[in-house]
Design a protein around this nucleic acid. Structure first.
Lengths: 263, 263
DNA sequence: TGATGCGCATTGACCAGACAATGCGTTCCG
DNA sequence: CGGAACGCATTGTCTGGTCAATGCGCATCA
């Protein structure tokens, strides 16, 4: 026999996924459920609801009740600096509605000098004592934070340059790096999927049960030396991460082994 | 004044991140914590611990106690079918240890004919009545499931072909599609970050607080018609998703506006 | 009319227990 | 010596409450 709190969660989850409880709608109150499932203890009902909360399906709004979460992802394109036109030819756009949605963006920029974390140090191949400069940006849409974006570079490289101004750089910080002799020609993207830290929850105002993608970009100059590490924290409930790939003509008859879009 | 259960969670989280409680180590028992924080009610302590459980930091093991989770991500490379040599030149490998780790892989394959979900139908641009074939694979490493991989294609395209055999296809199913006149030349990757469904928890034996990436690959033929949709479910605690990008010489002096590795 | 205050429904935090389930180690017995 | 039985520590499920916090609507009053 399944525990009561699980039956409650399963039943409600079912109703959410089959549309009986559409996004934005209100769930039965704890008291309703307590009665319906014949379980007197409120904690049991709460235990069931907390499952759904941690799955990111519902949010409690004291004292109004529990509501089915509404999500509306934006498109996040790590490749956007590469592409000439938005997507190749836009055979995809019918899939990805509401791009940007014409809502006005804003961002905070803050520059400081810090000791690098291990993540940053290994990727920039720094010596133990070397310091780095960091350009921290929090991006907002209609005032709501939706993305944290911290770039790190060796202090000796960017010191005194425009890279370190805490304002928008019109021609782009990559251009600044290029003028410093480090044109970025290659990048490695690592995407880690995890739950947010309490700090991230605060800065991004994340609801419960919302995972994030930690998107670490290491960029390299033509001589294969790492130049910059950027760590993006991307809330899962507000974004789809999108990449486009084309078959490289050079690498044509290689790797016939496994399925494509697989592995 | 912060609630007790939060203080408990904060203190323990701190100890985990600063190494006082290393991965694999055992936490104080509920009774210990109850005493330490002077809170009599067990439920309060449990509430605090459940926060950490849902953040994926600890796992309860009845009746042994709570333990700090150990994670060891594998590298997941959506682009692997493109690349000729493993990574470009391998200037990255020092970052990504334990690639594959020489553990022997295995997979279940299962083929069936189904009505497409909305996700699949829109991406394959199918008519309402059209059926699709699906090739479902569950991949294991040392018996442990680590990846679900379902490919969909229009039934009329693959019916009767080797694509539908529920066994490994030596030359690759992409080759089969090529022989059917649909060589795959372009792909769109969408990555959604979310909590798993109960079904995914079961199939992948996910611990609590483990988010997943839903990686949807739509592949296109040379005439821009969609051929196949593959949905990968990638557990966050076992994988890093890795992409490599190179600056396209054609698209050189474009997009100077925003930072690179940014958006 | 408009602002103020009050009640009320609902969730948040906490208390003080009970009994069940489950691994693990120890003891006991053949 | 080897296996079965038992006890024990610990978490899992659930009972049956209390008081606090918080929006919201409604009534009250200037």
């Amino acid at each position: 026999m399944k525990p009561i709190y699980q039956r409650i969660a399963d039943d409600l989850r079912e109703q959410i996924s089959d549309g009986t409880l559409p996004p934005g709608s209100r769930l039965p109150t704890e008291a309703d459920l307590r009665e319906k499932y014949g379980t007197s203890a409120r904690s049991t009902v709460r235990q069931g609801l907390s499952l759904l909360v941690n799955e990111g399906l519902i949010v409690p709004q004291r004292p109004k009740g529990y509501f089915v979460r509404e999500i509306r992802p934006l498109v996040y394109r790590p490749q956007s600096e590469f592409r000439r036109r938005p997507p190749e030819v836009d055979i995809y756009t019918h899939l990805l509605a509401a791009e940007g949605d014409e809502r006005r963006p804003a961002q905070d920029i803050e520059v400081s000098i810090v000791e690098p974390t291990t993540t940053v140090r290994t990727r920039l191949q720094l010596k133990d004592t070397e310091l780095v400069a960091v350009r921290r940006r929090t991006r907002r849409l209609d005032g709501e934070a939706y993305n944290i974006n911290d770039s790190y570079a060796s202090l000796s490289l960017v010191e005194g340059s425009e890279w370190m101004t805490p304002t928008d750089v019109a021609r782009g910080t990559n251009q600044v790096l290029a003028e410093l002799g480090k044109e970025l020609v290659r990048a490695l993207d690592e995407i880690y999927v995890r739950m947010p830290t309490p700090d991230e929850v605060r800065r991004l105002q994340l609801g419960p049960g919302t995972p994030v993608a930690e998107h670490v970009v290491t960029t390299y100059a033509a001589d294969d030396s790492p130049v910059q590490v950027t760590i993006n924290i991307v809330p899962g409930d507000r974004h789809v991460i999108v990449y486009e790939r084309v078959k490289d003509p050079q690498d044509f008859e290689e790797r016939p082994r496994s399925d494509w879009g697989a592995e």
